[in-house]
Structures are given as structure tokens and as C-alpha cells.
Simulated scan of single mutants.
Amino acid sequence: MASHPLIIDTHIHLWRTKDIPTLAWETPENPLFGTYDLPRYLKCISSAPSTYSGFVFVETDRKFSDPQDPSEDRERWQHVLEEYRFVLGLSKEPEFKGLVRGIVPWAPVHLGRGAMERYQKLLDAIDEEIYGEEKHGLLVGFRYLIQDKPEGTTSLPTFLEGLEYIRDTGRTFDVGVDCNRHTLWQIEEAVPVLKQVKGLKIVLNHLSKPPLGREPEGGIARWKELMTELAETQSVVKLSGGFSEIPPTLAKEGNEFPEQKMISMVLDYARPLFQIFGASRIIFGSDWPVCGVGYEKVMGEQAGAWPEWFKISSAVIKQLREEGGVKGEPEDWDGVWGKNAIGAYNLKPQ
């Protein structure tokens, strides 16, 4: 049996018990209330093929506030800075050697170039604290979630400045929108701005969070138009996040997860995205541990979410490859699992 292609999980979140009060969304009622650290993640992916080769950490929406003066930066951004310190520190621990392939922290993109430059200096200080003079190359991009922000956020002149700063550093911008709960307005607002920043490397999270099992408000045709516009930029799409968009009607079949129904729903959106972007511009991600929330609603427990999403992603890739109609060489299809991400995020080889 041929070995599986290289695997890099391009979207995971981690936090320790002491970090819980700093998470903007965390409450005792939240299904993810608890500790989701690296040992727990590694236990969940124990069934992964031997070609698994680490992950990209993406910021977890820590609490922050906007400084009124640069002297307030460190205090207002203390939780996001501590998150970066935490994950960068993991990369130095011998037992986790090589697992942290990239870090995508929060950044004050909405505040413009000046704020981004000041923030970068604070990150540089953490780099020196943990790595000294060594250049680790793990800071590969930035994310500022759009999905929970008011209309007009991405249209601010300062937001454009922030994106231009990211472009100038050669790093990526992870786009987090929600086409399920918020219709299409977020991506409609963001795409023209993203297109203005020529050369910006863009990673669209979670297939744009489409409403699986139905059309988005605004229509699938309009959604495809927006994805086609986005494809005119230097962008890739994460095959991730599907379990968060499961419709409430999806139920387990006997004691099993309804794989075929889930595969069909994911294909409704993955198929046009593969056709629009091509296989070389799709990358795999699990969205752990968030993937466990939707899975738990169907199965009654979070355990098993990572391997189940891996199986569904495998089936989706296999079917689209067999159907034809998607641009891509064999190495591009294999690269969905890991090698495409190396280029998208400029990850250091191992």
C-alpha cells in the first residue's frame, strides 16, 4: 500500500487551563470550556498516518482592546502576546520538536500600519526572549477575525493599511468570514479590499464557512461569483471547518457518523472551490478542537472528530480527483494534504 502524502494540519487552536479567562468567547456553558493543549491534540490525532508532519497554529480570539496611545500597547494586547509566547515556547520543547510548523497570531490589522509596526516590535521582543539571535521563521501570517466584526470594518482605510503592511512583510493574511450565520455581506465587503492589495498572500479559512445542506442567503450563484473574484488574488482555501456548519437535522445512523451525507454536503461547496482555485490552491486543516463541537452534536462526544474529518476530507479529495474538471497535476492533489501549505505559508522545510 502506498504511503499517504505529507500531512500538515493547517488550522489548530491550543490553550491551557490558565488561558481560559483570556478567551473572548469562553464561558462555562461553552462546549469547549476546558483545557485543549498539545498533549490532548496529539492524543486525538493518534490514528493519523505516519506522514503527519506538524501543524499551523491559528490565533484563538483572545481578549484585547484598542490602545488610545502607544504607551498602552503592551497592556491592551497582553493576552494575544502571551498566546504567541506560549506557542513559540512549545516549538522549543524537545518532546514537541518539529510539530509547530507555523504560527498565525492575532494582529491589529484594523488599526493600520503604525499599530502593526509597533505590534511587530513586541513580537520581536518575544522572539529574542525565546530564541535569542536564532531566526525561527515560525511567524508565517496574521489573522484578524472578520466574522464577528461590524459592517464597514474591512472598508476602513486603516484596514487597507494593515493589509499592505502584511503584504510588505511577505506574510499571509488569514481571512475568517462566516457565510452561514451572516449571509454573504462579509465576503462581499472583504473581497474588493483584498483585491486592492496586490501581492498579498491570502488564506481563506474553512471554505468561507458555508451553510452546509442549503444555499447561502444571497444564493449559491452569488457565492461562486465572490469566490471567483477572490481567486484573482494570491489566495488559497482551507478544506477545513465543515463540522461547525453541520445543519441541526444531521443525525447519526445507528451508532455511526453519517459520513455519506456529510461528504455530499461538503462537496456542494468544495467542488466549486476546487474548480475555481485548482487543486494546487487548496490546503487541509482540521480546525481542532472546534471541529469537535459540531461532531459532538451528532455523536454525543467530541472524541473522534479529528479522524472523522480526516476521512471525510479524504473522500472529498478522492471523488473530486476522479470526477475530473479540476485543474491540478498529481503532485497538486497530493499537496492538498501538506505541500501546498508549505508554499502558501512559506513554511520552513524539515
Score class of each variant (00 low, 15 high):
F243H: 09
R321T: 06
E232W: 10
P289E: 00
E256L: 03
K252N: 01
G328N: 08
Q260K: 09
A270S: 14
F274C: 12
E323F: 02
Q302L: 15
G294C: 03
G338S: 09
I282W: 07
E253L: 00
G338L: 01
Q275M: 04
Q319I: 08
E259L: 15
P258G: 06
P247W: 00
K261Y: 13
Q319H: 12
I246V: 05
E323I: 00
A231Q: 15
P289D: 02
E256D: 02
A279Y: 07
L273R: 11
L267H: 13
K297C: 05
I276C: 07
Q260I: 00
Y269N: 01
A341P: 08
P307A: 12
K238F: 09
E256C: 02
D287G: 05
G328A: 13
F274Q: 13
V298L: 11
I282M: 14
N255W: 01
I282E: 05
P248N: 13
Q319D: 09
G304L: 04
V298W: 00
K261E: 15
V326Q: 06
K318V: 05
S286R: 00
C291W: 00
A341D: 05
R321H: 11
W309E: 12
Q302T: 14
I246H: 09
P307I: 09
K327M: 05
G300A: 06
F274W: 09
A305W: 04
V237M: 14
F274G: 10
M299N: 14
K339Q: 12
F243T: 02
I276T: 10
V266A: 13
F257S: 08
E232A: 11
S280D: 14
Q234I: 09
E301K: 15
V266S: 09
G254V: 02
G325H: 09
V298N: 03
L320P: 01
L230F: 04
L267A: 12
Y295S: 01
E296V: 01
S286W: 03
G335S: 08
G242I: 05
W309Y: 13
E296K: 15
G241A: 14
W306L: 14
P272H: 10
K339C: 02
S280F: 11
L230S: 02
K261R: 13
I342F: 07
E322P: 06
G328T: 15
P330H: 06
A279G: 10
G242D: 05
A315K: 14
G324D: 00
G343W: 00
G343V: 01
E245Q: 15
G285K: 02
W333Y: 05
W337I: 00
S235C: 15
V266K: 11
V237N: 08
V236D: 13
F284C: 08
A344T: 04
